[in-house]
Write a protein that binds this DNA or RNA. Sequence first.
DNA 1: CAATGTAGTCACCACCGGGTGACATTGCAA
DNA 2: TTGCAATGTCACCCGGTGGTGACTACATTG
Lengths: 217, 217
Amino acid sequence: MCHLLVTNDKRMARNRQTTEQQLIAATGRVLAQQGFGKLGVNAIAREARVDKVLIYRYFDGLSGLMRAYAEQGDFWPSADELLAGVDQVSGLQPIAQQFTTVMHNYVQALRVRPLTLQILSWEMVERNELTAYLEEVREQQGLALTGALAAIAEHRPEVDVAALASLVSAAINYLAARSQHIKYFNGVDITDDAGWQRLERTIAQLAEALLLSPDSV
Amino acid sequence: MCHLLVTNDKRMARNRQTTEQQLIAATGRVLAQQGFGKLGVNAIAREARVDKVLIYRYFDGLSGLMRAYAEQGDFWPSADELLAGVDQVSGLQPIAQQFTTVMHNYVQALRVRPLTLQILSWEMVERNELTAYLEEVREQQGLALTGALAAIAEHRPEVDVAALASLVSAAINYLAARSQHIKYFNGVDITDDAGWQRLERTIAQLAEALLLSPDSV
DNA sequence: CAATGTAGTCACCACCGGGTGACATTGCAA
DNA sequence: TTGCAATGTCACCCGGTGGTGACTACATTG
């Protein structure tokens, strides 16, 4: 068992910033590969090939590391991403179509972000730095979008735009997150593009039915 | 430290069936009070005031115990419960109203079953005996109900009834489960009856808009 | 080149989880 | 009453976790 002073070539130059980045990156990898349940200091340090004590020294513990990870991650679609294809100068596009487009963009955005789906699932069960961050961003953005929609939909005072948006986005959140583990929900294949087209088509229909102004048929 | 042969009066008569019941009941209590994350042999045995080895002997491990617990629990609303208030002899009641009533009953049923909400949350994250059981029952029942609805809604071939039912029930699952930990979703208070009335009213509107036969307005 | 603070390593602790083998006690049947 | 299987108790083992103190190795500065 001679472990002499073998100069290990894989040693990285000592650099705090680099190490911090490695830890943050490792957090993402552990989350993606093993899920939230296994996300702990030991697993992260192992993945980053770094000693776990550095998590305490640099981030003051797991919470701090998760906060750092949350702030530098692209978990939530930007407003621009959600509004792609929406004519913002108003009037030219029926509000129902705007709604449908936003929800379509939302579906695409979620299905392309597996880590967001992980967090979305986990926030059903536990509240922590990551889930709190995602919640906050979502709630603010949701309110902004809903507010804009509601303003345009004044011609339909009997429709509760916030409730409608809540229902549809809740359904999308649920189905997208569940598609990680199951294939069929009520007979609809939620792992498949075809299944989502059925869902999106239905969303479009109900948006038209509820939001179109009566005279613009 | 004299621990003589003090005959402990709280000793139960030895009885396997009684013990099994205690373990099953303790499973429910641990689940309700500490959530899924803490549901393990140690916690259950402690709660049941019984040695954990009996979980292995009688149920062949935690999985078996959870299966037993699932089979004897009232986690899922029965078809009768969901169909309460629905006129089944058909024809007399518009299909939109039937749909709305079923979804209303579903909301009530879920909000009154905290353990079901726990399981519903957990099945977003992990698949085990309990969540698998709930999934199976739901999928079967959902398909049956959707099939019945679809048969009645023949007059609206352009509407994808399964997709519509999936959307609405997914939204209900999501919002009911999330209401365990958060209060507002997109500005709607999901811990409050008033908030749910907004949601249900919107469900009723979209059911009318999509399912009502064109001539029965 | 020496000194010093920082980056990183290592060994260790207490705790808790699942799981098991050996033992004591009880009820019941022969 | 005796014997035995069923019931229940206890003491462990193992591995993993979060967390900490003492150490070494390095880079930079004077």
